[in-house]
Measured scan of single mutants.
Amino acid sequence: MISLIAALAVDRVIGMENAMPWNLPADLAWFKRNTLNKPVIMGRHTWESIGRPLPGRKNIILSSQPGTDDRVTWVKSVDEAIAACGDVPEIMVIGGGRVYEQFLPKAQKLYLTHIDAEVEGDTHFPDYEPDDWESVFSEFHDADAQNSHSYCFEILERR
């Protein structure tokens, strides 16, 4: 099963200049909980913004210009990325925008964090048809001392 995991502000903004323009430790914990011990696929820009392999996960970098870091697996196509994951129950696609666009048609599940923030962004989550998805989990949280904005975790499964 292919799943996408993303944090989205208003207007589906997911990033600005290779960074997330908010401070939500709870979302980072949600991300870790849902990706640990699963292969993660990301684009080169996302890889560069993280700066290191995510521990406890097979890191697969999709790029037309593969790098030389041998701590991760470099691939040039969506099919190659899927094959590099091996026989696993769930593959997690973690961004960025172009990689989400490439995998959305193949995805069966979306793990979304909806952030109540209007922020400037240069990267967006692809538009998706809500009628194609069923919400199977939703959990709202107010902003607090650690988390700069209110947010809602949601899991959607393709109908």
Rank of each mutant, 00 (worst) to 15 (best):
N37W: 11
E139H: 08
R52P: 07
P89E: 09
A19C: 14
A26V: 02
N37T: 07
P39R: 03
L62T: 04
S77Y: 14
T68Y: 15
L4H: 01
H124E: 05
K76P: 10
Y100M: 03
R71P: 11
I41G: 03
W30N: 13
P66K: 13
I41N: 02
P66T: 11
M16A: 14
S77G: 10
N34L: 08
K58D: 10
R158L: 05
R158T: 05
E48I: 09
W30P: 07
D79M: 06
H124K: 12
P21K: 02
A6V: 14
L4A: 02
D131G: 04
P25T: 13
G97P: 00
E134R: 11
A29L: 11
P39T: 15
Y151L: 08
Q108P: 00
G97E: 07
V93I: 06
H124L: 07
E129T: 08
V10C: 04
Q102I: 13
D142Q: 10
A83L: 10
F103N: 00
A117R: 08
R57K: 01
G43S: 01
P66A: 14
N59V: 15
S64I: 13
C85S: 08
Q65T: 15
D131R: 06
H45A: 15
D116P: 06
D87G: 11
I41F: 01
F137K: 09
I155L: 07
I5V: 00
R98P: 01
G86I: 06
A29E: 11
D87A: 11
I115P: 03
T68K: 10
H114G: 04
Y151S: 05
S148R: 01
W133V: 00
E134I: 10
L62W: 03
V119P: 09
H45K: 05
D131H: 04
Y111H: 02
D144K: 04
A117C: 06
I155P: 01
P25D: 07
M16S: 14
V136D: 07
R71Q: 08
D11G: 12
R44D: 03
L4G: 02
V13C: 05
Y128T: 06
I50C: 10
V78Y: 13
P25A: 04
E157V: 08
Y111A: 00
A117F: 02
R71S: 15
S3C: 00
T73H: 13
A26M: 02
R44K: 15
E17F: 02
I91K: 06
E80Y: 04
G56N: 10
D79H: 12
I61G: 01
